[in-house]
Design a protein around this nucleic acid. Structure first.
Length: 474
RNA sequence: GGGGGGAUGGGGUAGCCUGGCAUCCUGCCAGCUUUGGGAGCUGGCGACCUGAGUUCGAAUCUCAGUCCCCCCA
């Protein structure tokens, strides 16, 4: 059975119903905060393993810093502070006592971490220093709250590195962004555009911000991860110095980068359909569900015997399975439930299948039933899981591409940007960018790497200096 | 930042204008029965967002608050 709301007709309502009905999240009595339920959290844990593996290989180590940041620390970098202060939540009391100094609930951890970096770095031998933390973040947004996409508290990882040279730091920025693009595309099957942010959109306190941006089904942009070159801005203020090999003193070059539980929202939006979630096999906490169809206990036992061989074979390949033997639910009920939850492959084993020494196998993304012999089932499923992962990315890529437009002139731009991304030239003047935002609500999402500017600025008509994507965003 | 809509058992709803036993669907529990696309019968459980006010009496009217959703900037 389908969800009440249709994806094509009522996207926003559909999304809200989807994430609740599929049990990714639930609301709480706390404004702007939600529960990430077991099904949603398991997805987050898969993201964590995927990224941890890549970070560890690069020498990044996990640590944990306090969530309270004294006001004086947060204030040290003026641009950074100004950028975050409108959405900082403060602790002003402890028990009965007013605090002498307010404590921010971390909106990001640069200042607290770099205070410590200054203490830990003194020689070129201490570099590079690469630390990551998985934690919660508080940003007191008042509008446009939406599960996973924007909540006052969310989970993320923030990587922070310090290097001896600018080149090294730049390489780290790009490396982290590549991990994020891999996470989005290879793990979640969500295609992204990689590029730089404009000065207006960059991280407060950074020299440069890089981003991955995804096209949502309603044409809006979703920023799925960012990686910043901080230059020596924070090093100057927090006094992070080191002795070089030839005895001189220098400031470190820094980077910071993060992805959040927002990725789960992107996943749900991009792949969900009118029946519920569709999870790519690599991210699905449960990959194969087996539904026995039985009239008697004997039938069920026979189905189970047939399933056991399959389960063992899939288990050996690291594929997760569940045998749904509940007898208070009809098969049809179970089909609907597992479809809602997005399990990639469903196997049906009933008397008809047993009679033919086989089973019926259905991919969640296709919905077509295939009869497969017992002997071939495990291999068939393994192959289909791999195919499904590829198909889902390809399909999502084609769909995203269909929402990326090019505009001949500003009039056309204004119309197209209602429907999706618009790829266009920009003169580089912040005033044009600001005017476009004022008039259309669209922001400069990214200046893609490896693409040369061509033509003229869509707004002022002067020669374009940058190739850009504009879009309305979440 | 501005505008609009809403909150009634676990979920979805009717009732509100015109104050008087809270409706229906679903769910949950027990039993029987049933299982190839959300099965049936019987019995049971379970709710008016919070606080103040008006009133003999408030889900309904008034005020304040909390939370949710949508649209515009």
């Amino acid at each position: 059975m389908a969800l009440e709301h249709k994806k094509a007709a009522d996207f926003s309502e559909w999304y809200l119903e989807l994430v609740q009905a599929s049990q990714l999240m639930d609301y709480t009595p706390v404004q702007g905060c939600m529960v990430i339920r077991e099904r949603g959290y398991a997805i987050w844990e898969r993201v964590q393993s995927f990224l941890n593996a890549r970070m560890q290989k690069d020498g990044v180590r996990n640590a944990y810093f306090p969530m309270f940041i004294p006001e004086s620390l947060l204030k040290q970098e003026a641009e950074h502070f100004a950028g975050f202060v409108p959405e900082v939540a403060w602790v002003t009391r402890g028990g009965d006592e007013e605090l002498g100094e307010k404590l921010a609930l971390r909106p990001t951890s640069e200042t607290i971490m770099y205070t410590m970096f200054a203490k830990w770095v003194s020689s070129h031998r201490d570099l590079p220093l690469k630390i990551n933390q998985w934690c919660n973040i508080i940003r007191w947004d008042t509008k446009a709250l939406k599960p996973f996409l924007r909540t006052r508290e969310f989970l993320w990882q923030e990587g922070h590195t310090a290097h001896a040279s600018k080149e090294e730091a730049e390489a780290e920025v790009r490396r982290a962004l590549d991990w994020y693009a891999e996470t989005a595309e290879q793990l979640l099957c969500v295609p992204v555009i990689k590029g730089r942010k404009s000065d207006a959109e960059k991280f407060p306190g950074a020299d440069m911000t890089t981003t991955i941006e995804a096209v949502m089904p309603d044409g809006k942009a979703l920023q799925c991860g960012t990686s910043h070159l901080l230059g020596q801005n924070f090093a100057k203020i927090f006094n992070i110095r080191f002795k070089t090999a030839d005895g001189k003193e220098d400031l470190v070059w820094q980077t910071s980068w993060g992805v959040s539980t927002r990725l789960i929202g992107a996943l749900a939006m991009v792949h969900g359909d009118d029946k519920g979630l569709v999870l790519p096999p690599l991210i699905a906490p449960l990959q194969v569900v087996i539904v026995p169809i039985f009239k008697t206990e004997e039938d069920k036992k026979m189905a189970l015997r047939s399933a056991e061989k399959l389960i063992a074979a899939l288990d050996a390949k690291g594929i997760t399975t569940h045998f749904d033997e509940r007898d208070d639910r009809s098969p049809g009920w179970k089909f609907n439930e597992w479809e809602l939850k997005g399990v990639p492959v469903r196997v049906e084993i009933g008397l008809k299948d047993l009679a033919k020494q086989g089973m019926t196998i259905v991919r969640r993304d296709k919905g077509e039933k295939e009869f497969v012999d017992d002997a071939k089932a495990a291999d068939y499923i393994t192959t289909q899981l791999e195919l499904m992962q590829k198909d889902m990315l390809a399909r999502a890529r084609a769909e995203a591409q269909s929402r990326i437009f090019e505009a001949k002139d500003y009039n056309e731009f204004k119309q197209l940007v209602e429907k999706g991304f618009v790829k266009t030239g920009w003169c580089g003047d912040a005033r044009c960018e600001e005017a476009i935002k004022e008039e259309t609500g669209a922001t400069l999402r990214a200046m893609p790497f490896d693409e040369k500017a061509k033509g003229n600025c869509i707004f002022c008509g002067k020669p374009a200096k940058e190739a850009t994507y504009f879009a309305r965003s979440y």
